[in-house]
């Protein structure tokens, strides 16, 4: 029989889990070239909600955890096609055009525009199931030879600890589903960008060029080779092309499995705090009494998390 047994019921375990969940912060940016256009993203997310279910098979299910996408700034770099005039037939013949006017293009090359789409403020759901595992942690910042009492007194403390992690067995995640207004957002952003590059021209010239370019939405579809559903295309760009789902799943796995313990216990464990010396100084204080923890185990039933350990 273990020397120490600590149990936390499901509600308490939920509170412990919430503390770990609330320190989750995801911040990522990247860029890529996708043939006719370039794209980059800058993303920030945190976790909220979720229900914890301790299960009889020794696993823990955290269900309906919300990924709050605080920021999804997607920037698209596009080449507007050349805008040319001329090219009309000067001498038509029954067999075709014998002489054609040269085409004269308004720009020396395809002008670049860059549009930023602020897509943040959406939520995806995530479920993660795994087993509780223990890991012994020695702080790499702790100097060799530092005793356990000094390690306790440093700020932050550098004591060794037994940590409890949730080692995920699977993660279910909903794809990032951008709002259905993204089509209008993209159209307005490209329209503004085109206006901006033509901004120094007189109004009639802008009108003519935009007339030649045609409806902005058709222009976007042509440049990006987008099917009808822009919303789905942008979601695919984030989820598949950039692989954001894989990235965040990997981040969640590492976060719970390696980086952020659900809780921990100090080793050696202080069973008596430092107190003033009742026999008077010297010394003025009696050091804490600490007992080393060994054979640290964690498991759960369908009602509680149980920690068992021996005192060496």
């Amino acid at each position: 029989m273990a020397h120490l047994t600590i149990a936390a019921n499901e509600k308490t375990f939920g509170k412990i889990f919430e503390a770990a969940r609330d320190t989750f912060a995801f911040d990522e940016s990247d860029s890529g070239s996708f043939g006719p256009f370039t794209a980059s993203y800058d993303i920030e997310a945190h976790l909220e909600g979720g229900s914890v279910d301790l299960r009889g098979d020794g696993t823990v299910l955290v269900d309906e955890l919300d990924i709050k996408w605080d920021k999804i700034d997607l920037t698209l770099g596009l080449n507007i096609p050349q805008i040319c005039v001329g090219g009309f037939c000067i001498i038509p013949t029954p067999f075709g055009c014998a002489l054609r006017a040269p085409k004269l293009c308004v720009f020396s090359a395809n002008p670049d525009i860059s549009v930023k789409l602020p897509l943040g403020g959406i939520t995806s759901e995530l479920s993660v199931a795994g087993r509780l595992v223990t890991r012994y942690f020695v702080d790499p910042a702790r100097p060799v030879g530092m005793n356990d009492w000094d390690a306790q007194d440093t700020s932050p403390p550098l004591f060794n600890r037994w940590q409890i992690f949730l080692d995920p067995e699977f993660v279910d995640i909903d794809p990032i589903d951008v709002a259905d207004t993204v089509g209008d957002l993209l159209e307005n952003a490209v329209d503004d960008a085109v206006d901006n590059i033509l901004g120094f021209l007189p109004g009639w010239a802008r009108k003519l060029i935009k007339g030649i370019l045609g409806p902005i939405i058709d222009l976007i579809r042509d440049i990006l080779d987008i099917p009808d559903d822009i919303q789905e295309w942008i979601s695919d760009l984030l989820n598949v092309s950039f692989g954001l789902l894989d990235i965040i799943v990997q981040f969640v796995l590492e976060y719970f499995a390696d980086k952020t313990p659900i809780t921990y216990i100090e080793d050696p464990f202080p069973i008596l705090e430092a107190v003033a010396n009742p026999n008077g100084p010297p010394p003025p204080m009696l050091v804490p009494v600490k007992v080393p923890i060994r054979d640290f185990k964690v498991f759960n039933t369908d009602t509680e998390m149980v920690i068992e350990a021996n005192v060496a």
């Binding site: 080449n79 308004v106 720009f107 020396s108 670049d112 120094f200």
Partner: peptide, 11 residues
């Protein structure tokens, strides 16, 4: 690529 406007087209 930086595109240079052929300003004379409009002026």
């Amino acid at each position: 690529m930086q595109a240079v406007l052929n300003r004379e087209v409009f002026s």
